[in-house]
Design a protein around this nucleic acid. Sequence first.
DNA 1: AGTACGCCCTGGCCGC
DNA 2: TGCGGCCAGGGCGTAC
Length: 273
Amino acid sequence: MPELPEVETIRRNLARTIKGKRISRVSILQPAMVKREIAPPMLAKRARNRFITAVKRRGKALLIFLDSPDVIVFRLGMTGQMLWSSPGRPVRRDMHTHVIIDFGAGERLLFRDPRRFGEMYLTGKGNIECILRMGTEPLHRNFTPVVLNSVINSRVRIKQLLLDQKKIAGIGNIYSDEILFEAGIHPCTPSCSIKGVRLGKLHKAVCLILREAIACNGDTVSDYRTAFNENGSYQDNHRVYQRQGEPCLRCGTPIERMQLGGRSSHYCPKCQK
DNA sequence: AGTACGCCCTGGCCGC
DNA sequence: TGCGGCCAGGGCGTAC
C-alpha cells in the first residue's frame, strides 16, 4: 500500500520523466475515480496542452503542478499505481487503468487502481493545504522532537496516532508497526505518556524507517510498483509487519498481532513496552 | 469535540 | 479441483 516512501519513490521517478513535458491529452476511462467539484471532462480540458512545472508530494498525496493555477492531485489509496509508459518500455492498459495522461511521441502516464480506493482531482495551487488538511511532514527538517511532542498530545494509542494524517503526514500501517518496533514502544501506549528519551527514540525511528524505505524504493507487499513498474524491496526488511508467530529478530520472542482501531498491528511483546 | 466504527472495492487465499 | 466466502485497509462519513 503506498505510504510516504512509496509515493516519494514515484515522485522521484516522475520528476525525471514528466517534468517539463506538455500534456497532449487526458483520457479518463473511469470517471468515478475523479473526485471533487471539477468534473472529469473539465479536468481533461484544463490539463490539456499544459506543461508540468513540478512533481511534489504531501504526505501520501502526489501533486502534479501545471503551468496554470491548477495542480493535479493523486491519492493512491491501497492499490493505486502510477505507471510510466514509453515506446522503449510500453505498458499496456487493462481493466484497472482508470486515467491515461498522454505526452505525445508514445509517452504516457497510466493511473491504475484495482481496488479503486484511490482518487484524482484538479484544484487550485492555493487550495492544496486546505483540501488535504495534513499534519507535519516527517522528513522535513522542521520535524523535530519538539514538534513531535506537540502533536502527540492526546491519550490516543500511539499506533492510531501515527496513522492520523492530520497529526503526521504519510505514515500508514506498515511503517507505523516498523517505527514502533524500532523505537521499542508498545502500540497501545497512550501517546501523551511518551516523553524524554522515549520521545527521542520515536522521533529517530520515524526518520530512520522512512528514509530506509525510500532507499529501498518502497515496500511491495502486494500491488505497489515504482513508476517504472519495478518492485520495491523494503518487504525484505520487515522486523514485525506480517511476521506474527515468527521470532523477533532482536530477542526471539514470537511476534504478536492485534486489532487496533480496525487495523492490524504487529509487535514484539518483549521488546516493545 | 473527541473518539469509534462501518463502508467503499476486488484479488488472493483459505477451507470445505 | 472448484468455488464460495472472507480478509486486507486509507480515508471519510456518521453516530454517540
